[in-house]
């Protein structure tokens, strides 16, 4: 392709894209144990956010403590004690099973940012079409409740005729990857496109999306876009 719609888009390097940093923090917290000052601070903060004794946060903190305790004990002490710990641990795990793994914005970002742009050999993340701060997720993690994702995308130019295709790619990716409890809304960021309302309407029309997914040609293009996903 020689004539791009947008010849010169701004590009981010892959290592500039936002990733999950909490993982490192969590490891840190776990390895240093509960006596760690940082850990205690975090705990206090969490408790301040949610004071009730029955609160989920408190239970989670407790669970984490037990986990840490168990880890250190199995290495050094008798089986009897660890068995007991294990039993109470299983009980606590059972309590929080229903709401075990809510999906957050970073996860949605990771699912969509590596989709390839239909025009440039770059990803939607690199072109800042998908941005972490423009993703809203409402999810309790409960598999028996509906959840919602709202993504605002930013086309590289205001008359980009490929905006609908990009949106479709994101929708297909999320519909395939997310649990079925998710309702997905994809919108153009306000003021980023000439036919904002038209594109928005089309991207969120269930019937049109279903029909588009039965169109082989279109589906091939979308598959190509998704081939760069992790």
């Amino acid at each position: 392709m020689s004539d791009y719609l947008n010849e010169n888009p701004d590009v981010l390097e892959t290592n500039q894209l936002p990733t999950r940093e909490e993982d490192d923090e969590l490891n840190n917290y776990l390895s240093n144990g509960i006596q760690n000052k940082n850990g205690l601070e975090r705990r206090k903060l969490l408790l301040k956010m949610d004071r009730s004794l029955e609160s989920q946060v408190l239970k989670d903190v407790e669970l984490l403590d037990r986990l840490l305790l168990l880890n250190s004990i199995t290495e050094s002490t008798s089986d009897e004690e660890s068995d007991e710990n294990l039993k109470s641990l299983t009980q606590s795990t059972h309590l929080i099973q229903d709401t075990i793994d809510p999906i957050d914005a970073q996860e949605i970002y990771d699912l969509t940012a590596y989709i390839q742009d239909p025009e440039h050999p770059l990803t939607l993340g690199q072109l800042s079409i998908v941005n972490l701060e423009d993703i809203q997720v409402h999810d309790t993690g409960n598999q028996k409740e509906m959840a919602e994702v709202v993504i605002h995308i930013t086309p590289t130019i205001t008359h980009c005729s490929l905006a609908t295709l990009i949106g479709l790619g994101i929708r297909v990716r999320l519909e395939r990857a997310l649990p079925p409890r998710f309702r997905i809304t994809i919108l153009l960021k306000k003021g980023t496109h000439q036919s904002e309302n038209q594109v928005n309407k089309q991207l969120n029309d269930k019937e049109r999306v279903t029909a588009a997914c039965e169109n082989e040609q279109l589906l091939n293009v979308v598959s190509n876009m998704l081939s760069t996903c992790k």
């Binding site: 028996k144 509906m146 079925p180 309702r183």
Partner: peptide, 8 residues
């Protein structure tokens, strides 16, 4: 509510 579970 949820007449088809979490589905539409």
């Amino acid at each position: 509510e949820l007449i088809h579970g979490i589905y539409e």
